[in-house]
Amino acid sequence: MQEKLISLEEFWELRKSIPVVDARSEGEFLQSHIPEATNLPILTNEERVIVGTLYKEKGSLAATVKGFELVGPRFHEIQKSAIQQFEKGQIIVYCWRGGMRSQILSWLLSMIGFEVFRLKGGYKTYRTFTFEEVRKNWSLLLLGGKTGVGKTRILKELEKQGEQILDLENLANHRGSAFGAIGQKPQPSVEQFENLMAEELRNKDPEQIIWVENESRRIGKIVINDHFFHLMESSPILDIRKSDEERIQLIQEEYSMLPKEELIAAVNRLKKKLGGLRTTEAIEDIINENHTSWIANLLIYYDKTYQFDLERHEPSMVEILDLSGKDLSESCQLLLNTKNQINGKLTNPTH
């Protein structure tokens, strides 16, 4: 069955029902890839180095012949793997530029009856899109507030109510503090984070506001690109206030069940900033499960950090909103009312 070349525009629709296969090496795939793609490498990491070196030294023909020499003995294994993984016999395939590797995989699978759609321009075309998408001039409204005011919970509730949100911490697999990686999956690369971010943004209405939690430039090992971070810094921010008791209770709900050794390791990472005495006290409280005490101890540091971060924003762009004693539903309604005042129009004009 003959392959069909598809554009990126066609790709968006086809991938809803057809699995995506990445023909690049394991290392390339691990670094970044189209989300939800499956890796079926034509050349392994080691083989790719060999072929690449030969290409530089002796040219395209020698590299191509060597590539076939290396991968040829595995042709049947690649076909069997595809049969096992993709029972319907349909795939979308790509490599770096939509060239040799995806062509070989397309040919191999077409020979055994697969219907193959090959992405024109390969991953490079997709990555060009995601790079540009996360650097557009989006309209943002930031959720700010000290640690423990429940920004992430509020963000999720706003989404349930039909608001556009972008959960950067969820995409980064990190809560954005020294404790942020505990209980999370490994973080993606910065490039993969941008791919995930772009996938979210491409479904947003650019004419409408997107709610984003106020973050520092770095979320764990992830660094937000300069343009988007500048948008965040120059966007209105709703500074949520909650009582200390409410904040400590929320943090306790989220962190008290986590492994003690990981909590202690996080405290130790802050030792230089906390000082020896407070570090020792916090660790003892964690060991003794005195959660209220160690959380209150660390909030002294985090509150100072937040205040410093808040001062990056133009004071006229900061709106203080006291949500003490308010549940999620009440909190969101107040936030939406404030958004309407900022935006100068109703959030849902059809309601």
Rank of each mutant, 00 (worst) to 15 (best):
F86Y: 06
S106V: 05
G144L: 04
V116K: 00
F131D: 15
E69G: 09
L143K: 04
I83F: 10
L108H: 01
H76V: 13
R101H: 08
G89Y: 02
R118A: 03
F131E: 14
L70I: 05
G99I: 00
S102Q: 09
K88M: 13
F86N: 02
Y126Q: 05
R127N: 05
V134E: 04
K124E: 12
G99R: 06
W138D: 02
Q85M: 13
G98H: 03
S106R: 05
I112P: 00
V65P: 02
L105Q: 01
L109Q: 03
G144Y: 07
T128R: 15
P73N: 08
R74G: 09
S81D: 12
G98K: 01
I78G: 03
F86M: 07
W96R: 13
K66I: 06
T130N: 08
I104G: 01
F131G: 10
K120N: 12
Y123A: 02
G144S: 04
P73C: 03
F114D: 00
E77G: 07
V134H: 02
F68I: 07
G72W: 12
S110F: 09
E115I: 01
V93D: 02
L140H: 05
G145A: 06
Q79E: 13
G99D: 03
R135A: 11
I92S: 00
Q85Y: 13
H76C: 06
G121R: 07
W138G: 04
L142H: 03
E77V: 08
S139T: 12
P73W: 13
W138H: 05
I104A: 09
W107H: 12
L140M: 03
G67V: 01
S110E: 15
K80Y: 11
F75N: 07
E132F: 11
I92R: 00
G122M: 06
E77T: 11
I91M: 11
G113L: 09
T128K: 15
K124A: 08
T64D: 10
R101M: 02
F68Q: 05
E133N: 11
Q85F: 10
Y123K: 03
P73R: 07
V71P: 03
L119T: 00
E133Y: 13
S139D: 10
G89N: 06
R101Y: 07
K66L: 08
L109P: 02
G145H: 06
G72M: 12
K66T: 10
S81G: 13
F68P: 08
V65F: 14
Q103K: 15
H76L: 11
E77L: 15
A82C: 08
I104L: 15
G89P: 07
